[in-house]
């Protein structure tokens, strides 16, 4: 179902949306899979326009992980054929520049490899389009502008207005992707296109290692005498034993609670 304002906006001319998809990996088994954030981007694209979005992948992968995106109800996927260590940004920018597109959606960070989250910014900058990070939904589109909601910490949202065309990354708080169906995924068409992608020179001399566990920061007691430091290190953290209110009427008690809530800034 399209939101009403959106269906009106797109009645004349359907929105043209592209989603950039990558191959993800399962965090535990490390099997290749459909990347979660990219699937949410595809889901958002599907919900925005009656015209099917185009899916674009740079690489040489031809596996079930990539096909799983087709199982979400799409007919075809474009693969820009490139080496695994090629720089995807110029290839993508060259391809997208020639397409009549309104919105390009991506995930925030890739699940494999560097996962820096810089790609949408770099692509947007090469195209000269604005980039909106971490959107959760597109609320309406009117006279060449889109109203989008951006995810903030603690489940808060912010409304932004951007001119079309633009690039946006889709936050993990957006709607989860629909189930991928196996049959359509196998039947879907993968359209390979040659592209002249240069190898990523900047990354050539970097080394990749399995992640080392990061040390936990300990609260070290500083200063004082040795005895004081010893006491601070060994003392059991006691329940601070907050204030207990037994006396008073119910109203006074409720006032105390409300005063605390106001002091903490959660009730205005």
């Amino acid at each position: 179902m399209l939101p009403e304002s959106l269906s009106k906006a797109v009645a004349g001319q359907p929105l043209k949306i592209a989603a950039l998809v990558s191959v993800g990996q399962h965090p535990l088994s490390r099997r290749e899979r459909q990347a979660d954030q990219d699937s949410r981007a595809v889901e958002l694209a599907l919900s925005l326009s009656p015209q099917l979005p185009s899916l674009i992948h740079v690489g040489s992968a031809q596996n079930n992980a990539l096909r799983a995106y087709l199982g979400m109800g799409l007919n075809s996927l474009t693969v820009l054929n490139a080496d695994p260590d090629a720089d995807a940004v110029p290839a993508l920018a060259d391809y997208l520049r020639d397409q009549p597109l309104d919105i390009v959606l991506t995930g925030v960070r890739a699940e494999c490899g560097e996962g820096s989250g810089l790609l949408p910014y770099a692509v947007a900058s090469q195209l000269g389009w604005p980039m909106v990070p971490r959107i959760v939904s597109v609320v309406s589109i009117a006279d060449g502008h889109a109203d989008v909601w951006q995810a903030l910490p603690r489940g808060q949202r912010r409304a932004l207005r951007v001119p079309l065309p633009f690039v946006a990354s889709v936050d993990p708080a957006a709607d989860p992707a629909r189930q991928s169906a196996f049959g359509p995924a196998q039947r879907g068409n993968i359209d390979f296109r040659p592209c002249a992608a240069e190898p990523d020179q900047a990354r050539a001399d970097w080394e990749q290692h399995p992640a080392k566990p990061r040390p936990k920061r300990l609260a070290v007691a500083k200063g004082g005498t040795a005895a004081e430091r010893m006491k601070a290190a060994t003392a059991k953290p006691q329940g601070q034993g907050g204030q207990v209110m037994t006396e008073g009427t119910d109203r006074e008690k409720a006032e105390a609670i409300l005063a605390r809530l106001v002091a903490e800034g959660v009730v205005r």
Partner: peptide
Amino acid sequence: TVCRGGSQLTDWHRP
């Protein structure tokens, strides 16, 4: 510099 890669599974060592 050591950077965490995608899904917190790799470390990238780089200048």
